[in-house]
Computed example of a mutant assay.
Amino acid sequence: MANTAKRVTQRHDPTPVLRQAVQAAQRRLLLGRHDLADVNEALARLFADLAPIHDQLTAAASAAPEGPVAAVLAQLRASFGHAVDGRPEPAINGVITAATTAIRLADDVALAREYTDQARWR
């Protein structure tokens, strides 16, 4: 009997995956030895985590070049460049900056609710 089942593909929002992957890389780097081998390993894992959604991330960054996805990807490119050049500390700093920027990828409605009362933050 022939298999007639249709394959269903769904497009999910890639930003939670990006946010989680970058934050996981940041944790690995902050807990590591800060040498080039640890940095390269963390960046390789990050690349592997993001490879399946690369096209979606690129499309999101192209659609909003000034947005947080584009900013996170720019920081990650800089981190990879520093690692390639053998500079682990700037590579780590780039991942930390990307993780901080990735916070902006959270649900805008939730963030708006969180910061409605600005006086409580003073």
Rank of each mutant, 00 (worst) to 15 (best):
A74L: 09
V17W: 07
A48R: 09
T100M: 11
Q26C: 15
T9M: 07
N3M: 06
A70Q: 08
G67E: 02
A21G: 03
N3V: 03
Q118R: 15
L30Y: 00
P52R: 00
A60I: 00
A112I: 04
A37V: 13
L50G: 11
Q20P: 08
A51N: 07
E114T: 05
T100Y: 09
T100W: 13
K6C: 08
P52F: 02
A44M: 12
K6S: 14
L30M: 14
I53R: 06
A42N: 13
D55Y: 04
H82Y: 11
A37F: 09
H82C: 06
A106F: 03
D117A: 15
R122F: 14
R104Q: 15
L111Q: 13
L30W: 04
N3H: 14
V109M: 04
V72N: 12
I103L: 15
L29I: 04
A70D: 02
T15K: 11
T116K: 12
L105C: 01
L57M: 04
A64E: 10
R19I: 00
D38N: 14
V72E: 12
Y115D: 06
P52Y: 00
I96P: 01
R104E: 15
T4F: 13
L30K: 09
D117Q: 15
V22N: 08
R33W: 13
A99Y: 04
A42S: 11
Q23L: 14
A37Q: 06
H54T: 07
D107L: 00
V95A: 10
P14E: 09
H34N: 12
